[in-house]
Amino acid sequence: MIEIENLSKSFTLHNQGGAVIAVLRDAHLRVLPGECVALTGQSGSGKSTLMRMIWGNYLADAGMIRVAGVDITAAPPREIIRLRRETLGYVSQFLRVVPRVPTVQVVAEPLLALGIAPDEAQSRAEAMLARLNIPRRLWGLSPTTFSGGEQQRVNIARGFVHPFPVLLLDEPTASLDARNRAVVLELIAEARARGAAIVGIFHDEEARAAICDREIDVTGFTPARAA
């Protein structure tokens, strides 16, 4: 489901004297349906960069990223938008929503975007919120006022409410208590079982061990720093 070949990435900081920071070189990765792969490596080694490149958020300098048959590095924006709507889910560490929109709407939105009827979208969103132990009294409120752990779970609910065939998970269990962490691991396991290809960043080693088939150390893709 995910194929990455010869992928390179650097950032050029035009406003800081044109400094070029190379982040990835010749990255390779292949994730099959039903497989969960953890990206590892120390902070700054490029885990998040690689994940964001699969999401289409960062541009590639060279190489290829194929997700469900679409080459992210070459696809026009609307192809990527379609892929994100139908195929590719992403749970980031940050919740970014229109202020004042009720939580249940935030979670239902990916379903509405797929053209699912509002009633069904709402009930599926509610079921997911309930499963993630978001108190019912919060469903009608905007998540912008929630605690970090609650926001994180809203984000997860959004990412799992539609059975995306490909999932990108950035620290999905960080800042969660044991009970909710167990729920999230369960959700990931279910996604794997239904055949989703999953790439994740987990600092939580126990979780990683419990859920992942393989680990890829991105340090191997880190270019030697130019002297």
Partner: peptide, 9 residues
């Protein structure tokens, strides 16, 4: 380009 790509990269 894609909105989040232009803003983030």
């Amino acid at each position: 380009g894609l909105t989040d790509q232009v803003l983030d990269d």
